[in-house]
Design a protein around this nucleic acid. Sequence first.
DNA 1: CGCTCGGTTGACCAAATTCAATTCAGGTGG
DNA 2: CCACCTGAATTGAATTTGGTCAACCGAGCG
Lengths: 239, 239
Amino acid sequence: MASGDPFLRKLERAGALSDEEQAELQALTFNRRAVPARNDIVTGDIPDRVYLVMNGFACRYKILRGGTRRIVSFVLPGDLCYMHDTGAFGRDLRVGALTPCSVVDLSRSELIELIGTYPGINRAIWWVTLRELSRAREWIVNDTRPADKRLAHTLCELLVCLQVIGLADEDSFELPLSQSDVADVLGISHVHINRVVQSLRAGGLITWSDNLVTISDVQEFKAFGEFDPAYLCFDGFGP
Amino acid sequence: MASGDPFLRKLERAGALSDEEQAELQALTFNRRAVPARNDIVTGDIPDRVYLVMNGFACRYKILRGGTRRIVSFVLPGDLCYMHDTGAFGRDLRVGALTPCSVVDLSRSELIELIGTYPGINRAIWWVTLRELSRAREWIVNDTRPADKRLAHTLCELLVCLQVIGLADEDSFELPLSQSDVADVLGISHVHINRVVQSLRAGGLITWSDNLVTISDVQEFKAFGEFDPAYLCFDGFGP
DNA sequence: CGCTCGGTTGACCAAATTCAATTCAGGTGG
DNA sequence: CCACCTGAATTGAATTTGGTCAACCGAGCG
């Protein structure tokens, strides 16, 4: 069982891992460090590393020419990063901590070795990647919705993703991000997100204060944000 | 050599394929068919197939609740689809022909078999997938730009992607899509894209008539659209 | 000839940005 | 303890961007 480790627990969504596979994965760890908020998790170019966020909220993002930051995905506890976000793939894509993060460094070459050796690990890494792809496409779709629904959709995604790793209960979760951070997730201005948050509050859909988001009626809120969790592929590869 | 086949030519961007690997891939074909414009390439649920577009423009898209269509990626000649767009991954993601398309059906199970057997094919399919991911993230970023730059970026992407398969020359290409199709790519209304097209025309940046797009000054236009082709990963996996 | 589709236009409305300023809580130095 | 500073949330006003509705035009086609 991978009960204690959010990484293994997540990977096992793609299918069970043998004890040997789990042991091999855990053996990759060779460093653990703290990354302060607003710092990049990936700095400089240490080519043979892959990073695993154990704690805290991080994100992948790009900086536009005007200086605007656009966040293209969350990196939550148990998420692997810099696996493919490197070299040829997205030289301008960066990975940064939104809150203080606890990060484990893994050996990339050894992980690739494991992928080639163990079918379960191969399947798990494929699943993680395809899930990222599915999620990115859903974010594109979400960008065509008006800002209030867009925010609702994002909060729903956070709710269910955090529930899976035990960081959210039925209808609420800790969201240690500023409104400006969330604005960069949605691609809107920090002034506008404030107004949108207030409109959701005024409509009685959510409360959000002291970093705690509570959704009044989850079912209704998901409908409002047109949120269907299918794209998150929680059921692994299916049949 | 894969000179005649846009699929093999594209895959080889990830690294050379042996003659045996190429022969195995070509042996997968078991059907070729024509898909009319506005029809889905993937229809019903034939589980053991993967589709290869040989000719024409297609796209992956979703339909929002209001009925709006949002296109999340192009599918151009030589592109594989429905490889991962299936089952657990994106039940609501559809693949449709924008123009009449010529499509080859492949056996999915045999392709997966080949991925497990041949390292070159494994590497190629990984590369195709990671490129899709990188591209999707760039589209998210592009969605934060104003519509004129967004259109410029999209046209730049089309230009270089079509150049790679010999369907564009230095500064122009055939674009057999309606303005409304492109509006769904950008996530804006068909009225607004018309105005944006006209503004680009008025600025002397492009001409676009009779399905032929010509860019006046490619260098300048790429700068205008903040287009950097790095995310398209044409250099394979790099070093 | 009349139909449809794509492109185009105008008028009006809604959504979102920008600029500017204010409030408030927490932290720091005196 | 208080003055000061900073970062985040908030608000207002003016402006820009994009959407909606409605109409019109022109080419191709049965």
